[in-house]
Design a protein around this nucleic acid. Sequence first.
RNA 1: GCCCUUGUGGCGGAAUGGUAGACGCAACGGACUUAAAAUCCGUCGGGCUGUAUAAGUCCAUGCCGGUUCGACUCUGGCCAAGGGCACCA
Length: 844
Amino acid sequence: MNTQQNIYKPKDFENKWQDKWEETHIFRALDFSDRPKYYSLVMFPYPSGDLHMGHMRVYTISDVISRHRRMLGYNVLNPMGFDAFGLPAENAAIERKVPPKQWTEKNIDYMKNQQLKRMGTSYDWEREVISCNSDYYKWTQWIFLQFYKNGLAYQKEAPVNWCEKCQTVLANEQVEDGMCWRHDDTPVIKRMMKQWFLKITNYAEELLSDIDKLSGWPERVKLMQKNWIGKSEGAEIEFYVDGRPDLKIPVFTTRPDTIYGVTYLVLAPEYKLVSELTTKENKIKIEEYIKQTGLLTEVERLSENKEKTGVPLGSFAVNPFNGKKIPIWISDYVLLDYGTGAVMGVPAHDERDFEFATKYKLDIKQVISVDGLERKLSAAYIDPGIMMNSDIFNALDNESGKKKTIEHAESKGFGKKRITYRLRDWLISRQRYWGCPIPVIYCEDCGVVPVPESNLPVLLPEDVELTGSDGSPLLRAKNWLEVNCPKCSKKGRRETDTMDTFICSSYYFLRYSDAKNDKEVFSKNNINYWLPVDQYVGGIEHAILHLLYSRFFTKSLRDFGLLKFDEPFANLLSQGMVTMFSQKEGKIAKMSKSKGNIVGTSEFFNEYGADAARLFILFAAPPEQEVEWSTQGAIGQYRFLERIWRLFFNLKENVFKGTTFSPYEGFVGIQNLNSVSQELYRIANQTIKTVSEDISDKKYTFNTAIARMTELVNAMYKFLLDKKSFDENEKSVLSFSFTNLIKLLAPLAPHITEELWEKFSGVYSIHQQKWPSFDKEALITDEVELVIQMGGKKIDVLTTKKGQAQKDLEKIALSHEKVKARLEGKELVKIVVVPDKIVNIVVK
RNA sequence: GCCCUUGUGGCGGAAUGGUAGACGCAACGGACUUAAAAUCCGUCGGGCUGUAUAAGUCCAUGCCGGUUCGACUCUGGCCAAGGGCACCA
């Protein structure tokens, strides 16, 4: 029992099986099958070139789910691809003079063959999508044209987020705390630019209300999306300019009940009427203020500590409710792109307005209080109350006041009910080279002309020089840039901005359903067969970004008639991050290259194998929680695998000796077994039951599944201890236990189980075996453990016959020595009996 | 400021109203070995009493209360850590 083959050496066979799985296509998803379909998806990676243990988690979790479903008999789609456009490739090109395409392809090759494959993943690579390849981005462009045709893609001049380091604009979702999401040291600047937007706001209401349909999503993700969409209900009320009844200034407010308390209006500095409404004597001041505002970063402008500033225009507006004249100001705390870009100032009932009015000595007029009587105000009164100083609305409670004032405005024609969302339209233009070209041509005569679908793809020119300065290199790609207008054939010029890469990732999961189709983005049959995704696994960092965009794309494509479902991802699992101590940060932090706390996959695989790494990552914590990487802990899982490996040879060579040792299919039956065998048989079946539950989509607690399997292995070792010979029944139980153990373990540790299965059965492959079922008979026992409590405290645990009557259990408890001793001198209050579980005796 | 999540041994975690600490890591002891490693078998929350590796007993799931025969689990308040939103009118 000390031969070479008895030593567990994953290096000897992990790669062998990975190659064989690929050659035999056992993970191929069939378009249409009698078996039920299951779409298992993991967020496709950006090809940065080197995966570490931190990345490994998401792929492992998703792989276990896929492999388990196959064993359950599903036709599983488990695809993989690369989100291959993006800035890092371009930056690498500038620094190292390697063309982005070459850099990207090299990374993809390495990640695919040296990393993802070496983890033992079970992807159907025949459906691979690479977003920077023209056979993919042709469809990115095609989809853009559908948005354009349907009026959901448009250009507008707007204050947009600019990152100086990225040298491009960003979507709102890509700004975190006023900083660029890629550069947390670079504040975003607002710039006025003409850019392409997608009208995601058209879907704000549906994106919000359909969140309630997402029963398979984590609550925290749903909540984050709700907050991001940020619905608020109120009214739009039109003030008009004094002396200029033709000029109207609509404002949005959630507090129409405070309309009689308005003492001024404030416009965003970028508001279009500002210069027209500025009087001569204020002109210089106003221009100066607008200039100042333009220089501020978003962080500075939105900082709450910053004292509010503003300048009066010199002109006046009229409150349509009471005809009162009020001054018009501009201030940078008013945002152009929310509501109407203008707000009414009600200092008595809004904290910001109170601060502003106090500073600039503007009137403060109270219109609501607890009891409807005027009170001294030292701060804004924002609580509910009774209205006053409000003409016909006096003495109303302010909630009904909201309704009544809106009704009044509607009947008079100067206002209406309005709902506003915090969500803004999605800015998709990027002033970068390495992205999908926006298929649009500018013609002097025809204006904006979309590239005809038959001319797609608009290829990204490859013979460009990347300098990192002077704007996009596409501006200098003359041959590419200058084209004839598709409409009038006169001279035209291509759009040089490329698309946000989040566009590419907003439909890749749809394309997987029909990845090789060169006629359509996907066929109706394929899309409606495979989608929605049954289980999506990915990081919490996409709680808003990618997941919101993808929902928006799905709903839009549905409305274009391309697919038939409302939501793309039925179930979502947001795995926690992998952490490790970082010298640089001086604390435990997310594993990442920049923090210098990474453990590479190859080093560990070479030493201990991918199976041990997979098991550790699954074992250390439930999937949603953080996991701190511990090589020591991973070695613990390696030892577990070693124990299984040795167990196999021990059984084969010592227990079964000359006789055949092969898988035991079916049940042994508990009747004929002696008590020790019964015990092991029971544990084996209990293991099948609990592991099946733990690994199922109801729980996904892989950590406890592994613990249960460890217990079974421990029990088998115990069974073998000090025993020299085994009868047929005992051998059957051992074989049964081992057979089911490796089947249960197969999705989690695919290599060792495949290798042992081959040695055990001679059959390929364990991953095509049926998932085990358990022998219900074996779990029926006639004895149970009965806990005796007094006043809720445990006194003793007895083994008793199952199914005894309440009275009998009471008797057992009351005749217990310790109970008798404690009852002395006390009064028995009552006895609580939970049959087969507990007897609790309450005394006074 | 508002909203959400999480607090359990030396450590990761288990137990969602019924035996707190499964399983693993670390540590310690024993067997095997000339020895070490590996392996196999054990011990492993804390206090106190103790015949002392027996047996007993009390305390313990962030803190203070509540509901209940019984609370890590439900509930109210507080504290701490992490996350989201934040001049959104």
